[in-house]
Amino acid sequence: MEDGRTAVTLASAQDVAYAREAAKRAMTEIGASTVRRTKFVTAVSEIARNAVIYGRGGRIVFEIREQGGVRSVVAECSDRGPGIADVAMALTDGYSTGKGLGRGLGGAKRLVDRFEIRSSETTGTVVILESRAR
């Protein structure tokens, strides 16, 4: 990750594991605590899995940033899916259109410092996750 950016293509279950690995490396690089790293990697796992299962695959890009002396990792995950019709509903615990528990999206939001989601029928879904080192 010399230029601070890593991209992982998301097409299979194995790719979700690669995304977790890349998330872990980035959080380790910025010196995040174990708890922060664990939470971020878990959130990435949920989002990357969603992209593979519901979003017809896509990619996730990790970038290391620094603001006011605090480093953070930003993950931007974009898929090629049909979009989420009701984002607010999708963030509600227990809501699922698939076989999941419906805790993935709302859970991921609670695990990171910043969570953004954009979704439309034409562009698919983009989720941004950010966690600071401390």
Binding site: T34, V35, R37, T38, K39, T42, D93, L101, R103, G106, G107, R110, L111
Partner: peptide, 14 residues
């Protein structure tokens, strides 16, 4: 179970 895993599972509501 690692402590950080337990903390994360609670946040996930699991």
């Amino acid at each position: 179970m690692r402590p950080a895993v337990a903390m994360t599972l609670v946040d996930l509501g699991m």
